[in-house]
Design a protein around this nucleic acid. Sequence first.
DNA 1: AATTTGAGCAACCGCTAGTTC
DNA 2: CGAACTAGCGGTTGCTCAAAT
Length: 619
Amino acid sequence: MSTRISSIKHFSVIGKYFAEFWWDWSFASAGDILPVLPAVFCIEEMSITSETGERMISKNGVDSPSVEEAGSGGNSGENGPLKKGPWTSAEDAILVEYVTKHGEGNWNAVQKHSGLARCGKSCRLRWANHLRPDLKKGAFTPEEERRIIELHAKMGNKWARMAAELPGRTDNEIKNYWNTRIKRRQRAGLPIYPPEICFQAVNENQRNEDLGTFSSGNAQHHDFSPINNFDIPAVEFKNLELNQQLYTPTLLDIPPTSLLDIPANSLLMQGLNPSYTGKSVLSSFYPSKRFRGTESLYPSINASVCDVVPSGTQYPNDGSVQIAQSFALPSAFDNNSNSENPPSSSSIRGCHSVLNGNSSSEPAWVTKLELPSLQTRTGSWGSPSSPLPSLECVDTLIQTHPTENTESCSLSRQNSGLLDAVLYESQIMKNSKNNSCQQTSHASIMPVDVMDTLSHDLHETQWEAYGDPISPLGHSSLSFSEYTISSRNPLDEPQSVETVSGCKVKEEVVEPVPMQYDDNSETANLTIFSRPDFLLASNCFVPNDDQTRENSLLKDAFGPFLGEDLSRDCKQMDSGATSSAQGCVLLLKQNESITVHSQRKQKDMHQLTLNYLQNLFTV
DNA sequence: AATTTGAGCAACCGCTAGTTC
DNA sequence: CGAACTAGCGGTTGCTCAAAT
């Protein structure tokens, strides 16, 4: 026995494994628990003597009670310090016994009545995550994994709700799984959502819209209807190694990998159409935290999407300008037409803390990043929901045709940073200005009824244009069609990775099955709403009073920085046009909120933004 | 064989929000 | 109405273990 135990480094490990055994064999009924306890104590006692109680010191330096203490309530914690760190089987037993007797709830009473030196919260977590008899142990099954992906595509980071859909699984478990999966797939350069999930979610969203959810204009339901909940799931991108050197000072103080993880081309696509501005990139900057009930996550976006914008009149045909709009904040494009979401006095309404009424002193995006899932929003937003193809999807799209342009190898997103990618795309856009002109002229946002009637035409013209494999966006939209169809196993890993001129690109196996958009108005509509450049509609292009004020701010803020170019740009904005500068100024304004914490950050960001714009204008 | 690195997991923290008293 | 309690969330930390170096 001692040999067996000595092979296990920590008694908590014993407890862990024993707990599994214990539950598997002893939890047929709650009444079966207690007879097992002596065995638990026996093993742990031995492990302590053989391995010492090194782990009894918790990380905060509080002496943890020994097993005996925990078991006997020697360090009850009612007056003494509460124990932290891994739970022992003895503690588990105490907790289980307590819950068996008294039921769940009133967790703070556990400590008082059972002598367990754990806070109520810890007890609750332990019970919920490990001791509940209905918990499923072991790794997720493929089916569960598939389900998690699906659910995440619909719900975002609603771990508890996801857990509710997966019997026996806990939110923490799912969260850990998801985060691990994200990391793994990011490392592998894979899209987070498998293509079929993308398509499925988009389809579901569209179906729901067709059922009238979005026309109800009722925000009360969106929290109950995950699919319609435009909640932005958190997607963590911490470990992607791309371009860290270049951006380590980081634009906007966003962890560089997080920003860069947003595929440059998706930024570009957004940039190509200012309507894309408000959400995917910026929602990453302004992640949703939990919001409940009637809260509208992005009221300004809400307003923006449904506004009518004359087509083709207000977008400067300068790709670089438009690109910069990728960085604009939602608030910049909010003309507050939605009475349900009155204009905020803050010009940075995209900021989560503002939206949620929180007065966090720190911008939410300093520490949190989320990417949009495939969710759409409906309800109070009263707008056609925009089933966002995940950025990961776009990411994959980018990689689908890596050799279409030889330049992509020298300046591909894979090998260069965001700025490089932007510059690269700018160059391409210059080369295909005619194309982009045509494209952007269609890039305006119109209300859903208009969209309905025009979607067909839009598709025929714009979509084809996007499908041009030579155009800057050609590969994107084209491959999106392919992408959504060509999936095999959603969990498939890439078949191969090939290197083209030093650029590592993932090879996607694509079955060239064309979508019949034209024959299916629903699908066509879906296509339009799914299009990245449609998704982030903005009403900023309709000048109003707010706009005028904004533009005046622009001039003030950017004049000294950019001189003639920007001044010209701002003048255009005075007449209703918009500009990259607008977004950047807002970034600067946003950055001012950082100043409280770090003038250095602000300085860095000013410089970075300035450099960015200068690069744009000089490409 | 020793060390390093990274994945996976459990647990915690800080916070917000809902519910109950 | 406010306090206490609880649930939930996002993020983080620390640990173990296995693979890589």
